[in-house]
Design a binder for these strands. Structure first.
Lengths: 230, 230
DNA sequence: TGATTGGTGGCACTGCGTGCCGTTACGATT
DNA sequence: AATCGTAACGGCACGCAGTGCCACCAATCA
């Protein structure tokens, strides 16, 4: 009998333990179900004590998508590094890159996570709460940039929700399509199609468009009066 | 010592017990904090056994906003009763009425819930998950009605998220404004301002508007050439 | 080599949520 | 009005999540 190996003492050791725990959790959740798998099971499968599991993850649910906070910080960094006056459409597109990368870097695990969050109620709620933190982040950053507009707060809240929904829709279609690693640009392509739907359109805002339309309608009315059709 | 009163045997008794539990939970959470309040505390404050609490609510979190499922069903009923070809903007406005009513019927409790969901992480996550069920419901119903459009699924997903965000923004501004009961229409008024931001504008989409504008511009240009002002 | 630091495993504890069971009130039936 | 069936009740016990505590061990440094 070899003595039990303690692996977590170095930085590489900690990364190894963490990876083992994530893989064990995903495998056990997928195979035996989320509710039927205990934290003891996960820890034992990873060759580690139960108490150690909670030193790597806040709880059982966090083992499924453990890189949420890191990714959130990267998204925020994109906004922080961007110029104040940069157009919003390309910025919100670029801000989502860390999320896309997180999924695209490990398609197999992404698919497993996707299946779990679809089928397990507790993980679906967790996912919704996680997505909501991205929505709030986009909302904060857009509010800064739309502060001078009329109804800027409203536009920021609506746009943030719309953008996050578009991102998730893109990721979702990529996942149900088999999560092929070579389709790295599919997400971005899908997202670009939504740009015209957003309140903050690339070049002209909806408000401006409405004003233009009103003025042109009046011009048309004058046209009808001065030059009747025939 | 009077013998303990058993109140839950009739329909009115059950409603009374339920109300007592909700009020006790809100009061204790607000006064002593969510984590510091146990289910035993809530049950004892409502004069009921601990086991009974779990017969009225799925868990500790559900006691804060217990009418979520009923409200969700009412929203769905609005969609089910609506005509297939009804314009979307007034429909999504009307579909939110049950939510508005739920808040407006008890402003004091709504404010207490709002403060709790802002300050307690567990309840904020719960709220996000709850809001997400509304988003999915709107998404399903909009997908039915946008199926024939190009990118209909995308438009449905984006619009659903935008509409729900607008609703929540309206409710939020009503709540931070003091939750005055007479401001029943403030929510709807706030929401109407967002209509022009939505992909599915009241009568004409932004794309169509641009096409119309182009055509009218050409007509106006012709008018300028043929009949100069004077 | 000895002391410090930091991660680990085990133990015990609180609290949530559930299954089970005996008890009790209410309402229906006759 | 007495009785029976239903259903909600209280209480107990249990499993599991998550946390505080402590002894232990490996790596680093004096």
């Amino acid at each position: 009998m070899a003595a039990p190996v303690r692996r977590g003492r170095s930085a590489e050791g900690r990364a190894e333990v963490r990876g083992d725990l994530v893989r064990a959790a995903l495998a056990l959740f997928t195979e035996h179900g989320y509710d039927e798998t205990t934290v003891d099971d996960i820890a034992a499968a990873a060759g580690v004590g139960r108490r150690t599991f909670f030193r790597y993850f806040r709880g059982k649910e966090d083992a499924v998508s453990p890189d949420h906070e890191t990714c959130l910080a990267r998204v925020d960094a994109v906004f922080a590094a961007a110029h104040e006056t940069e157009p919003l459409a390309p910025l919100v597109l670029r801000a989502a890159d860390p999320v896309f990368d997180l999924y695209l870097d490990s398609p197999a695990e992404a698919s497993a996570r996707f299946a779990l969050t679809r089928n397990v109620a507790a993980l679906r709620d967790r996912e919704a709460a996680s997505v909501d933190t991205y929505r709030r982040l986009f909302g904060r950053r857009l509010r800064e940039r739309l502060a001078d507009r009329p109804d800027g707060e409203l536009a920021a809240a609506v746009t943030a929700a719309a953008v996050v929904a578009a991102h998730n829709m893109a990721l979702r279609s990529w996942l149900v399509d088999g999560a092929r690693p070579e389709a790295r640009d599919t997400c971005r392509a899908t997202f670009r199609r939504v740009e015209t739907m957003l309140p903050v359109a690339p070049s002209v805002a909806a408000d401006d468009l409405a004003v233009i339309a009103t003025r042109l309608e009046r011009a048309a009315a004058r046209l009808e009066r001065t030059a009747p059709p025939g």
